[in-house]
Amino acid sequence: MIRDLANPTRFMRLSGALLPWLAGLTALMIGAGLYMTWFTAPADYQQGETVRIMYLHVPTAWLSLFFYMIMASSALGTLVWRHPLADVSQKAAAPIGAAFTFICLVTGSLWGKPMWGTYWQWDARLTSMLVMLLIYLGIMALWRAIEEPTRAARAVSILTLVGAVNVPIVKFSVDWWNTLHQPASVFRLGGPTIHPSMLIPLLVMAVGFTLLGIALHLSGMRTEILRRRVRTLTILEAERLDAQAA
C-alpha cells in the first residue's frame, strides 16, 4: 500500500479523490462532537461547566503526539527506506502538529486558571508539552533554513528523531514525576475512569479532530508535491533560457 503510493502522481490522484469525502466526514464528526459536548454531556460535579474545555484539550494533546509520531516514522522513511513521499509527509505534518500542540497548551492554561488557580505551572507534563511545541517550531524553522529539499529533509529527519525522545516523556511524565497535571484517565490499564456520558463525546471529538488532522496532512502533502514541481520547472526554465542566451 505505502509502496503503491510512492509514485507522487498516483498519490495526487488517490488523495484528490479521497479528500472531499474526508472533509465531509470531518465536518460531520466535529459537528456531532460539538453537539454532544454542549447539549448532551453533563457538567462535572467538581469542575462544573469548565469540563467542556476538556473536549478540546484532550483530543489536541493526543494529536500533538500522533503528528509527532507521523513525523518520526516519516523521518525513518527518509533516512532508512528513502521513500519518495516520506519527507513530503514530514514537512506537511509539522505545522499541523504545532497547531494542535499550541491549542492543547492554551486550552490547558484556560482550564488551569479556574481549576488550579494558575495559568501555568512548571510541572513535568506542562513543561514537556512546551518543549514539544518548541521542537515543532525548530523543525519548521529548519525546513525554511535549507533551500534544497533533499538536504533539508535529511537534517530535519535527524532533528525529528532526536526530538522523539520527548514523546515518551510527555506520555509518562504524570507517572514518573509528581505532577499537578492529573494522570491518564482514558488510555490506562484497568480502562477509562471517565463516565460514558462524557467519554463518548470526548471520543467523537477525538475522531473528528483526527480526521481533520489527516485531511490537512493529505492536503499539505499535495501542496508540497506541487511546490516541488514548481521548483523543478523553474530551474528547468532558467536552464533553457540560459542555453538559448548562450
Binding site: 461547566e49 474545555i53 505545522p95 499541523i96 497547531a99 491549542i103 492554551v106 482550564w111 479556574p114 492536503s219
Partner: peptide
C-alpha cells in the same frame, strides 16, 4: 462564572483551526 475561560478556549481553537484550513487552501 468561568464562561469567559470556556468561550476563550473554543474561540482560540476555532481561529487556529480556521487558520490551518485557510492556509492549506490558499497555499494549494
Amino acid at each position: 462564572s468561568h464562561a469567559a475561560f470556556i468561550a476563550s478556549a473554543y474561540v482560540i481553537t476555532a481561529v487556529v483551526v480556521a487558520g490551518l484550513i485557510v492556509r492549506a487552501v490558499v497555499d494549494h
